[in-house]
Design a protein around this nucleic acid. Structure first.
Lengths: 193, 193
DNA sequence: GTCTATAGCACGATAGAC
DNA sequence: GTCTATCGTGCTATAGAC
């Protein structure tokens, strides 16, 4: 039922989603939904909660499962893959968060922006630790690097098709891109040591 | 008027945007809007058109303005900066495209997906040329690299604040990230020559 | 070019039968 | 736990005065 709601919120937006459409999708009548959820607001809130908790728990667990001697870059690799795996597993929920967060009532939006920011701060800290340990070049602003990394990773829900490349392949190409870069020889950056 | 429409489409979604709200924002009454635009559908279409044409023209012009001897990586750098500059210049239009495209009537959505795909193909070709010329490592799938790059660049409209870093600084950090990578020494990639 | 007024329809939510 | 029926509201779009 949450999954049906997420799908329809994505297709029609918050205001465009009707309780009748969600009810149809799960084989009920509109009035019956109110037995399970007291309002449309609490429905979208449940969808948004499911995503942020699902993704952040998946990432925190993946890092906690690493051996004690793991480098910061090992942690970043594990976080990238876990983020990728969970965000695609929660497909429609992730799209709902991406597209309708700006349309939900303000008190719900504020709560989720806070949760999302806390997750973003975790990434900043991870990159900062890597930089302090000398694994990441000092010239990078970690907040900027974090937004690029999460921006690229999150965009996968827009196009990923399970019939194509595996998530492991996608993740490992991305890790190679952010660690070593695209270029064989540096063309224009004079900052390289 | 288009700018007001873009802003409200982002805040409320397609269905949630009322002609009254747009009219209010520009100091008119709802009925008067129909003198300028025949329907809500054509309003969102004009907003979406403005963005895709604005961004792609900015990028194509930036590349056309390069000297004849420019490397492919010079072209990529110019495209990154022009994309970044134009997407932030069209702020609300870009957000509208990101968030409400999935909610507009199908015939309008299909047309814009086609335009967006054509622009994506241009990026693929750019990266492919760079790879053929030996400037980009052969191990990368150019389609994947393109989606990561555009995903990261497009996410800037979600957080960019003109009071912080300049767009030139943001662009140059991003270019350094995709060209050289984050890492001082490669930690886990055995594919490096 | 902008207004008022309204037709025709669909919405969220509730009440009460079963 | 699901149904039908309905209240009050607000929407797009149009018609015609100014």
């Amino acid at each position: 039922m949450l999954a049906a709601a997420a799908k329809i919120f994505v297709e029609r937006g918050y205001a465009g989603t009707t309780m009748r459409a969600i009810a149809d999708d799960v084989g009920l009548k509109a009035g019956s939904l109110y037995y399970h959820f007291p309002s449309k607001e609490l429905l979208i809130e449940a969808v948004l909660d499911m995503l942020i908790h699902g993704v952040s728990n998946a990432v925190y667990s993946a890092i906690a499962a690493l051996p004690p001697g793991a480098t910061y870059f090992d942690r970043i690799k594990a976080a990238v893959q876990a983020h990728l795996d969970s965000i695609t597993a929660y497909g429609e929920y992730a799209l709902a968060s991406r597209r309708v967060l700006s349309q939900v009532p303000p008190h719900i939006r504020r709560k989720h922006v806070r949760l999302r920011d806390a997750y973003g701060d975790f990434w900043c800290q991870l990159l900062q630790n890597g930089q302090d340990a000398g694994e990441i070049r000092g010239e990078f602003d970690v907040r900027l690097a974090r937004t690029f990394i999460l921006g690229a990773l999150n965009s996968i829900v827009e196009w990923y098709n399970p019939e194509g490349k595996s998530l492991d392949e996608v993740g490992s190409q991305f890790i190679r891109l952010i660690s070593d870069g695209l270029c064989l020889q540096t063309q224009g950056s004079s900052q390289r040591p």
